[in-house]
Write a protein that binds this DNA or RNA. Structure first.
Lengths: 329, 329
DNA sequence: TAAAATTAAGCAAACGTTTGTTTAATTGGT
DNA sequence: ACCAATTAAACAAACGTTTGCTTAATTTTA
């Protein structure tokens, strides 16, 4: 139904080869008059290029695929904006596919949709692949890079914040304000990210002469619910004066749960959040946070795909931004 | 570099045709022994199908493209989940591309990435196309459907809430609670959506015997900033006791601005939000909202693509969910 | 003015699949 | 034991492009 290059060729009275060349703006191989005719014919027929066919023969593609793990968190929007802008600057297109957060089968399907078609590179946002799916990804000849997640295996290309430092600086922010009894909420205990944040947290405590207590840390999956649960576990009488939350969502969870427990933030409890998305400024009081540079992660991700020679594990800087949830004692 | 069907054929000692058939699980045309050999060879070579090539010959695709306008609002996540689930149930894949919210050129590029490759259908989330870009979309032979947006032109297929009803019910919620002086904040005055919400708002007022006042409506683009600006424009002494906000984000804007103005919600000012995303329950006090059924919009969208015979303008139901921002007078 | 150089356009192969048609081999029925 | 019917596999065309090579026509150069 749709017009092809051959239809144009017929209408303009030239060969498909010539049509291809003028439509691709090749510099030579045809005269101005032919160009006119071809352009006119293409317009008249409402021609749309079949990119799949073109990619098939050229064996290259200009699309970057982004795999994201969940629709929930919205820090991904900043990364995607970074990807989008940088990709556009290089004449690349971006498509996004959702993989389930845990379901390996959904993960596999998302990966396949991406691998089984010609893409220039794959960016994985905060995705933890099962070993089988990782093998699948590596089996494809496509360059890839993990974003906002790091691994113990140093060979996997990734761009993320230094999680140890994140944990350290979040904790230190509270220590500097005079807090001694500090909780760590809704950080998972399984992943690289969680373990390093925990280590950073404990180091900061020790460097300040505070001995970490086991019941100060309430692990969780970084979600709003996890934040609430962690805070509920602490209860109103834990003696904690500050909490580091694993994400903005988690921080809002501890914030709201604190309120339910009759605790006022920051008067009775100080909170430092991790991420620093726009959410921090939407809630009351505004969340003091260790802010990650998500936009740059995205930008660095596409650059990494373009020049795979670079070092594989990159780190983007963080900074703490002081808002309203830390009270200095 | 990547293994093709021919490589498998060579390794297994059969023809490419046979390989294609066993890999596609065709029922006949080959024996169990050959099937074994082919499977083994495919596995050994780490074969990945080239979907683009397959789509080229079959002239059909099983991917749905979703065009979203901005990374900001997160109501889209619910629609996308609806799309995703329904698509998966039909064996379809989903890819997402971002179009700029206003920039026609970005819009055009996003549209082209989608049109110029074989997709089964296109879903446009809350996208307002320029006339040229609309023509572009219609020129493609691909079925499409707009989601969460409606048009004056009744021929454009769309699935959305009844915006008049949204405006009406939001306003009525406040009227029922005894409010008489009610504002409408951060609803735009240009689009179909904005005009109909405004009309619904005014009808509700009139039906209750209240004469709408011009300075009760402060138009805006549904954003957090627009909410803040609208509330700032009202000021602390407007006499308004209730405000209908154009979106959850806008509602949070009026909420926070109210606080800055020294107004307590809902004691001094009641708020009804429009959308009903998870944001409503994250802020304090939790936002009473006219909630849209975004998940169903997404689901209905993919069904619409599959059966284009259906009526083109569909409406999904809304419901008001009472939370904590409406005070009964 | 003839040969060389340049320009303009067409030919045809290739990319990796799918699938209708053909051919070869095996089985079954009588 | 012969022919029909069935099964198994290969052949080859097609999908819509791109691009190296060839050919034809025109212009330049000496």
């Amino acid at each position: 139904m749709a017009a092809t290059i051959k239809d144009i060729a017929r209408l303009a009275g030239v060969s498909p080869a010539t049509v291809s060349r003028v439509l691709a703006n090749k510099t030579a191989f045809y005269g101005p008059a032919t160009a006119q005719k071809v352009q006119a014919a293409a317009l008249k027929l409402g021609y749309r290029k079949n990119t799949a066919a073109a990619e098939l023969v050229t064996q290259r593609s200009n699309v970057i695929a982004v795999v994201v793990n969940s629709v929930k968190t919205n820090f991904s929007s900043q990364i995607i904006t970074g990807i989008q802008d940088t990709a556009a600057a290089h004449g690349l297109n971006v498509i996004i596919v959702y993989a389930g957060i845990v379901d390996p089968e959904a993960q596999r399907k998302a990966l396949l949709t991406v691998i089984e078609r010609p893409v220039m590179g794959i960016l994985l946002l905060s995705i933890n692949l099962t070993p089988e799916n990782l093998a699948l990804l590596q089996g494809a000849q496509t360059p890839y890079c993990f974003l906002s997640i790091a691994f113990d295996d140093g060979d996997l290309p990734s761009i993320a914040s230094d999680d140890w430092q994140v944990g350290y600086e979040a904790t230190q922010t509270l220590l500097k304000a005079g807090h001694r009894k500090i909780g760590l909420a809704a950080v998972d205990s399984d992943s690289h990210t969680g373990r390093f944040r925990l280590a950073g947290y404990e180091s900061a405590l020790r460097d300040a002469g505070v001995t970490p207590q086991a019941d100060w840390v309430q692990p969780g999956v970084y979600s709003y619910a996890a934040g609430r649960e962690a805070m509920a576990a602490y209860g109103a009488t834990s003696g904690l004066t500050g909490v580091v939350a694993g994400s903005d969502m988690a921080a809002i969870g501890v914030l709201n749960q604190s309120r339910d427990l009759g605790l006022r933030v920051p008067n009775d409890l100080s909170i430092v959040s991790i991420d620093g998305t726009e959410m921090c400024e939407l809630v009351q009081p505004q969340l003091t946070s260790v802010s990650q540079n998500f936009y740059d992660m995205g930008a660095a991700g596409v650059r990494q795909l373009l020049e795979p020679d670079k070092q594989s594990q990159q780190v983007t800087p963080i900074r703490v931004v002081d808002r309203q949830t830390v009270r200095v004692l």
